[in-house]
Every structure is written in structure tokens, then in C-alpha cells.
């Protein structure tokens, strides 16, 4: 901050803290959706700042697809311990078993779509009336049109045509019983903003965000890590490369990028120079149709 003007990162931070506090004040049972990625970790950092010196006044909820990076899980557990926060984990695997859902097939069997079922069940189980998520409007076209306080009907569905106008800094979180609100405190941040903030605040991240050697399959121009969930077939080209992850979702739907960036500073340089967007480089799940994200959101996805 110069004498009396906030820098853009300070403005973004303050706005996010304001939104966190609105969520905590307006709802009976909020929850913070935690995926283990850098956006989630930044969200937790912001939430901690919003309520300091008190603790984060709501639980963190992880919808676990079972396809996580082990590094991300390990990091999650250490973070929770450090913050003395409450963590609720609900597994997609259990939902598949109980609801007799059909497991996705194919080369990259992503359970991403099925997460919606587990999320909606978890909302019902704990009577959450507000789920705070780390979606950013710059990620994807359908997200660019979503409100900060986004009302979902009792089926968890988003109706883009019936969104409430959201004016000034006023967030209308009034809902009927059974409905819930998704709150997105970092709506106005970009990938670069997140990294600049991580640098400014010295936020710790799982090491898979930085350059490391890994065995990957080269598939249609994307590098997919070999794991328990993705096994190479005969025709696959398996190579060992220096890679890092730009986003961390499931091992089945997140691709790595080739990178030598070992520090936050180097990652920022890399992002500034890149010509490929975050989701474009790394998400195997968005490419199905042009409106893939819009369809998932309408069905109750994050």
C-alpha cells in the first residue's frame, strides 16, 4: 500500500475477505469446499485472515473422488492440522456404491461429473445452506457470468437466466428452505493474481506445482501422469519428463505441463510468457463440448 491507496492485490484481498465475512454472517451452516488445489489453499489463507484472531468459523469439505494426487492429500492433512480447522471428507466411491452409479469408462475415467452427486448428498447430510467455492470468472466462459452469491434450487441447479442482479457490494443471500447458495470469494481473481498473491503472502503449496520428474503418457498433446488410475496401454508412449501442474484436480482429468519452474517467481515468469490458458493446458474434462462447464454447473456442479 502506498500511503492511502491500495494496490490491486490488496483490493482483491479485501473484497474476498468481505465476501467471506458476508457468507459467515448471512448463513446458518456455511462450508468451504476444499479441493487441495492452489485456489483452495489461497481461499483457506483468505478465510483465516478474514476471521483472525478467531478460527475459521465453518468446516472445510473435501469431495474426494478417490483419484487424488497423494501429494495433495498429504498437504491437505498438514494444513488442517496447522489451522486446527474441521475437515469433512465425503467419497465419490461411496456414492457410486450406495446409489449404484455407473463408473465412467474410457482411457481417462474421470469421476469429475459424479462429484456432483456426492456434493449434493453432503449438502443434504449436513444441511449446508452455503457452499463457498474457489471458482474464478476468468477460468471459463460460463463462469464469467456467474454471481458471487449464486443461488441454487433444491436440486442444486444453476439457472443462468434467473440470476439475481448483484449490485455494488451488496450480497443478497436470502433463500428458501432447501435452497442453497454457492459463494465465490475469488471471482475477480485471475491465475496470475493468485500466483502474485501466493508470492506476496508466502503461501505454501504442494510440490507438484513446481518442476519435478515424472513418468507420463503423451496423449493428444497432453501429458498425463501414470498412476493407479491411469495405466499405460501398449500403444502409449511413456516418457519421463520435467513437469509441473498448473491446476490440481483429479489424476484422471488433470494434465501436466513441461516446466523447469522451481520457485513461485519462476512459475510467475512462465505464466506471463505462456500462450495457453490454464484450463486449456491442463484440463481433460472441459473439451467435451463447447458448453461442458455450463452443463455441469446447471446440474449442480461447483
Amino acid at each position: 500500500m502506498s500511503q492511502y491507496r491500495l494496490s490491486y492485490l490488496e483490493q482483491l484481498e479485501s473484497e474476498s475477505i468481505y465476501i467471506f465475512r458476508e457468507a459467515a454472517a448471512q448463513f446458518d451452516k456455511p462450508a468451504l469446499l476444499f479441493s487441495g488445489g492452489k485456489d483452495s489453499i489461497t481461499m483457506v489463507h483468505l478465510a483465516r485472515k478474514a476471521f483472525a484472531p478467531g478460527k475459521i468459523p465453518f468446516p472445510l469439505v473435501h469431495i474426494d473422488t478417490g483419484h487424488n494426487f497423494p501429494e495433495a492429500l498429504e498437504f491437505r492433512d498438514k494444513l488442517i492440522q496447522k489451522l486446527q480447522a474441521t475437515l469433512i471428507v465425503r467419497k465419490v466411491e461411496d456414492t457410486i456404491r450406495i446409489r449404484k452409479l455407473t463408473e465412467p469408462k474410457g482411457k481417462f475415467p474421470s469421476r469429475n461429473w459424479l462429484q456432483t452427486y456426492t456434493l449434493l448428498d453432503t449438502i443434504e447430510e449436513f444441511h449446508f445452506d452455503c457452499c463457498i467455492g474457489g471458482a474464478r470468472r476468468d477460468e471459463e466462459k460460463a463462469r464469467a457470468k456467474e454471481r458471487v452469491f449464486s443461488v441454487r434450487d433444491e436440486f442444486g441447479q444453476w439457472n443462468p437466466r434467473l440470476q439475481r442482479p448483484e449490485l455494488w457490494n451488496i450480497y443478497n443471500g436470502r433463500i428458501h428452505k432447501g435452497e442453497n447458495v454457492r459463494v465465490f470469494p475469488i471471482s475477480n481473481w485471475t491465475e496470475l493474481d493468485i500466483w502474485n498473491y501466493i508470492r506476496k503472502e508466502n503461501i505454501e503449496l504442494p510440490n507438484i506445482y513446481f518442476s519435478h520428474e515424472r513418468e507420463v503418457i503423451e496423449y493428444e498433446g497432453q501429458l498425463v501422469a501414470i498412476s493407479d488410475f491411469i495405466l499405460p496401454s501398449v500403444e502409449d508412449k511413456v516418457v519421463t519428463k520435467k513437469v509441473r501442474y498448473r491446476t490440481v484436480g483429479d489424476m484422471t482429468c488433470t494434465a501436466a505441463i513441461e516446466s523447469n519452474a522451481q520457485s513461485v517467481e519462476e512459475v510467475i515468469h512462465e505464466i506471463v510468457a505462456t500462450r495457453i490458458s490454464e484450463r486449456g493446458a491442463t484440463r481433460i474434462d472441459d473439451k467435451v463440448t463447447e458448453a461442458a462447464m455450463e452443463d455441469r454447473k446447471k446440474n449442480g456442479y461447483f
Partner: peptide
């Protein structure tokens, strides 16, 4: 961003960039 917008060539809602 939304399918209806692309289909009809109009903008329905405020989009942030």
C-alpha cells in the same frame, strides 16, 4: 459464454472479463 447467447448471437447477462 452461454449456449443460448451463442445460438442467438446475443448477450443475455453481465459478463466479467
Amino acid at each position: 459464454g452461454l449456449r443460448a447467447e451463442r445460438e442467438q448471437g446475443i448477450t443475455i447477462d453481465v459478463a466479467y472479463r
